[in-house]
Amino acid sequence: MTPSQHLKLGLIALVATLVVDQAFKVFMLQVVQITPGQVITVLPVLDLVMAWNYGVSFGMFQQDGMAGQWALVAFKVAAVVLIAWWLWRAETGMTALGLGLIAGGAIGNGLDRVLYGGVADFFAFHITTASWQFQWYVFNLADVGIVAGVALLLYESLLGKRPDASKSA
């Protein structure tokens, strides 16, 4: 793959992540009209719920006020600019794909903050037995893109092949 093909792959991943995330959020909020506290059981281990996240990952640093929300938006914009710069310089398709997924997810969650004042989360995984219960944080498809992108970057940095420097000289 050429650098321009890497960039194209990353941009396709960014747009696809953003579109799928925002389309699902519009569907849940406008068509299903899910409300906070409402639970829609999809599988014995998966529910759709409505949770607004006014903080960052895993609900940390909750920001109820407008100034805090705009500070988080500014942080996301700065992060996306850095990721875009990295994507522009990506040397492998896997790096470009991972960065595109991360950027698409970050833009999707940032757009939520601008449109709604917080991030709309819907997916709740849980396991319940007679003596034990586990529930993961509520998340959305943008978060899935971010986690998948980070996983690709980690995989590549730990196990992936490096571009041959002698070929690029």
Rank of each mutant, 00 (worst) to 15 (best):
V144S: 14
I146S: 12
Y155N: 01
L141T: 09
L153G: 02
L158P: 03
A130W: 03
L153A: 01
V147D: 06
W132A: 00
V147P: 00
F139S: 11
F139H: 05
Q135T: 05
A151E: 11
K161I: 01
L152R: 03
V150G: 08
N140Y: 10
G160S: 11
V150K: 08
T129S: 14
K161Y: 07
A142E: 11
G160C: 15
Y155V: 00
V144F: 08
S157A: 03
D143T: 09
I146H: 10
G149R: 04
V138S: 11
E156D: 15
Y155M: 00
N140Q: 13
L152N: 01
L159Y: 15
T129P: 06
L159D: 14
W132P: 00
A142K: 09
G145Q: 06
Q135H: 05
L159Q: 14
V147T: 06
A142F: 10
F139D: 14
V144E: 05
Y137R: 04
V144Q: 02
Q133A: 11
N140M: 13
Y155A: 00
V147W: 02
Y155T: 01
N140L: 14
Q135K: 03
L154Y: 06
E156N: 08
Q133K: 09
V138L: 12
F134C: 02
L158H: 07
A130F: 03
A148S: 14
Y137T: 11
Q133Y: 13
A130M: 07
E156L: 02
L158A: 14
L159A: 15
F134W: 15
G149P: 03
V150W: 04
L154C: 09
E156A: 07
E156M: 02
G145Y: 05
G160L: 14
Q133C: 06
A142C: 11
I146N: 13
F134V: 02
S131P: 03
V144R: 03
I146E: 13
W136V: 09
L153I: 03
G145E: 09
L141V: 10
S131W: 04
S131Y: 04
T129A: 10
A142M: 12
L141P: 07
Q135E: 02
V150P: 07
V144L: 08
K161G: 00
T129W: 07
S131M: 07
D143N: 11
S157T: 01
V150C: 11
D143P: 06
I146F: 12
D143Y: 10
A130N: 05
L154K: 02
G145A: 04
T129N: 05
Y137P: 08
W132V: 00
W132K: 00
F139Q: 12
D143A: 12
A142T: 08
F139N: 09
F134Y: 14
V150L: 15
S157E: 10
V138C: 11
K161Q: 01
K161N: 01
Q135G: 02
E156T: 01
S157Y: 13
L153K: 00
L154N: 06
A130L: 09
G160W: 15
L159E: 12
L141Y: 05
S131V: 04
S131R: 04
L153Q: 00
L158I: 14
T129V: 02
T129F: 06
L154A: 07
A148N: 09
A148I: 12
L159T: 07
F134L: 04
G160K: 12
A148E: 07
Y155C: 00
L152T: 04
K161S: 01
Q135R: 03
V138A: 12
Q135S: 07
L158G: 08
L153F: 02
S157N: 06
N140P: 08
V138R: 10
